[in-house]
Design a protein around this nucleic acid. Sequence first.
DNA 1: TATTGTTATACTCTATAACTATA
DNA 2: TATAGTTATAGAGTATAACAATA
Lengths: 157, 157
Amino acid sequence: MAKKTISKPTVSLGGLDDQIGYVLRRAQIAAFLHFNECLRGVKLTPGKFSVLLLIGENPGIPQAAICDCLGILKSNLVAVVDEFERRGLAERHAHGRDGRANELHLTAKGRALLRRAVALSNAHEAQLSARFRKADRNKLISMLKTLSLIDAGTSKP
Amino acid sequence: MAKKTISKPTVSLGGLDDQIGYVLRRAQIAAFLHFNECLRGVKLTPGKFSVLLLIGENPGIPQAAICDCLGILKSNLVAVVDEFERRGLAERHAHGRDGRANELHLTAKGRALLRRAVALSNAHEAQLSARFRKADRNKLISMLKTLSLIDAGTSKP
DNA sequence: TATTGTTATACTCTATAACTATA
DNA sequence: TATAGTTATAGAGTATAACAATA
């Protein structure tokens, strides 16, 4: 079949594909697309899944604690919890000792959905991990954690 | 100093920090923040830097070829090239053989800015790479490339 | 009929500021 | 005064559809 685009036969990436930031971004996009496809049935994006999981793992956790753990803003968590309540997955309860805070709890429906979601997420993770030997996979996790600790303030002026 | 938050003393992440997708995302956010800080002086985000670099490396490249290489949509590239023209960094020229296409070229100002940006990007990359041994760093690049090849269609229904 | 570039549009994610009520 | 949660809003980044000009 004849080529119809006018793209150059070879395009130089200028060393872009040997830079950690660039390949990190491309890998993250691919992993997110794969995750979204795997969890399409439970209608959870990576971010929403992590919130639901945290509530399930820590019944009664206040919203601020979730924000601290996941690095999201409290103002942006509101809509997520709203959606969970609308879908009947979670509930805001009054906090025992602090009148300002909410205790977040999963409903029975939320726990059931989380169980399905965890199974799907584990299947997704297994498909990513299957590309590597176990030791390499663990090394990858370790190196990514090292990178995530980099502080933007570290950059010299 | 007294603790003033009501966050639980220990929060379970439910194994989230042993999942490739999650640590990948956290690492990517940290790397992008660091990149943005390093390239603040040249006013280039990672995405815009990659477009400018591709034009510099491939003078006359049409917009569609950039989209193919970087995985962005042609409709979203328009504003980026508009901004480069407004800042006097790049120009759209008529394509020699294809009346539909643009040839993108850097101006002298664009080439000068790109040289500065590449130096800053290299310094950024050096700071990320410095966290690892050379062999490990190359292994990381290789594994991230492997992940980026994962197809979302690979997920079972 | 397909592709290049463009416009318009919408949706998500992220970020900031201001407010309330509690501490 | 500081924190928990909320609201409103604005800016990126990303997605689709439709169009004109050209292949």
